[in-house]
Amino acid sequence: MVTNIDTDVELGPGQDGPDDIVTHEVTLVRMVNGIPEAIVVSVDDSASSPTFSVEALGNLPGVWGAFNDDGMARADMKAGATNFLEADGFDASELSPVDAITFLEDAIVDGESVGADLLAEAGLSSMDINNLDAESKAAHEAALEARAQELAASQDAKIEDNDPSLGILQPGRGLV
């Protein structure tokens, strides 16, 4: 899974002509192994094409939200950015079974379901990390630990740099 996007995006001339270029730093927030992860991309928001807009980034599969550099959430539904980012090697829809199990944990703990009783049939009806086989449980715990360390290191670096962008990640809300 690609976890970093570091690219300047050129989307063509703005609505008022080729000089109408506005670039935003956009923070995408998505879940990786149950932990929110922020990705910052640089996006030209002034393209005349409505199919490539900063709003569309918030609707990528796997992305919980997109927030531009003034912290505003962008939620308009537009297509197109998926193809654009996938062309850059970004595939947010690429998930592992461990991702799925982590996701299901929350859905099953206090949720309800309708339809075929597939989760019970699969032995997942009382979803708990202890129900995972040893390999999946180890992978799950290793992923959480690695991500936690990565986040801690990232936060420490920001503190040392006195980075004003330091914030708290919340799923669906981004940096707050």
Binding site: F103, L104, A107, V109, G111, S113, A116, L118
Partner: peptide, 17 residues
């Protein structure tokens, strides 16, 4: 066969066999 699962916090899964 399809099962639709929703948690109170809004986590949603569509499971299909």
């Amino acid at each position: 066969p399809v099962e639709f699962v929703v948690s109170r916090t809004g986590s949603v899964a569509i499971v299909h066999k």
